[in-house]
Write a protein that binds this DNA or RNA. Structure first.
Ligand SMILES: [Mn+2]
Ligand SMILES: [Mn+2]
Ligand SMILES: [Zn+2]
Ligand SMILES: [Zn+2]
Lengths: 118, 118
DNA sequence: TCTTTGCCTGCAACTGCATTGCAATGTTTA
DNA sequence: TAAACATTGCAATGCAGTTGCAGGCAAAGA
């Protein structure tokens, strides 16, 4: 099961929600798929994306990704096709914070119209 | 009711969730508070923040804010005190996107330790 | 003043996503 | 083979967000 899911995830262009997975593997139990995603995330195979649509998306991590701040990239959610894409080439720039703020994670979500939809 | 909530919101340093409001106005109904926030957001008095904690936060808009891309600022979620702050002085820099991506909204959430907690 | 109209509020119910407990099944290891 | 461990499926639960409906209140009109 996990191998099938991993294969599926690595073939996707866009990030995948639990519902997407369920639709692709209608013979597998929703909970199994849920735990599979959690396991993959824990092991650093995928990263999760909270894009504000209400359902968390998952996408594979780049080769050698540690999910560290320097590995972070922008995510883009298209309001037309409703897909969320990783933009690994759009790195998140340094942000100047007020005194004594210590950053551990950054999430940058852009919304609009993707290339396929425009 | 709305006047009380508006006054409360404008006094806060950190963004406020529906649960926060409910705790502050335990005599008011949860739904009324919910709809009050929605109304304020619709009228441009507050903006909502999806910080990935599972509950949406609300904070007042700056004077003259149109919630347009140029009004956008960074939000910071402290993992210790669990508060989410607006950082209106930390503007979101321009991000270079691939060809044909059109941006309508940007959300930049930073997580870490805030000044009060460090 | 009396009535109509529209807005505000509260209760109840419902949705959808995420999460956990537990038992059954399957797989590895001693 | 037997024990230990990992994976899966079912059921149930929690929680944030959302909607329908009806009563109450207050402004606007007759
Ligand atoms: Mn990504
Ligand atoms: Mn803000
Ligand atoms: Zn699109
Ligand atoms: Zn803090």
């Amino acid at each position: 099961m996990r191998l099938l899911v991993l294969d599926f995830l690595f073939k996707q262009q866009a990030a995948v929600s639990l519902n997407d997975l369920e639709a692709a593997f209608h013979r597998a139990d929703r909970i199994t798929l849920y735990r599979t995603l959690k396991t993959f995330e824990e092991k650093g195979l995928v990263h999760s994306i909270v894009d504000g649509t209400g359902s968390v998306k998952y996408a594979r991590c780049e080769e050698g990704c540690e999910c560290a701040p320097e590995d972070l990239h922008v995510h883009f959610h298209c309001n037309l096709c409703n897909e969320t894409y990783c933009l690994p080439k759009a790195r998140i720039p340094e942000i100047a914070l007020p005194e004594n703020f210590k950053t551990e994670e950054i999430s940058l979500i852009m919304k609009g119209t993707c290339a396929s939809c425009s």
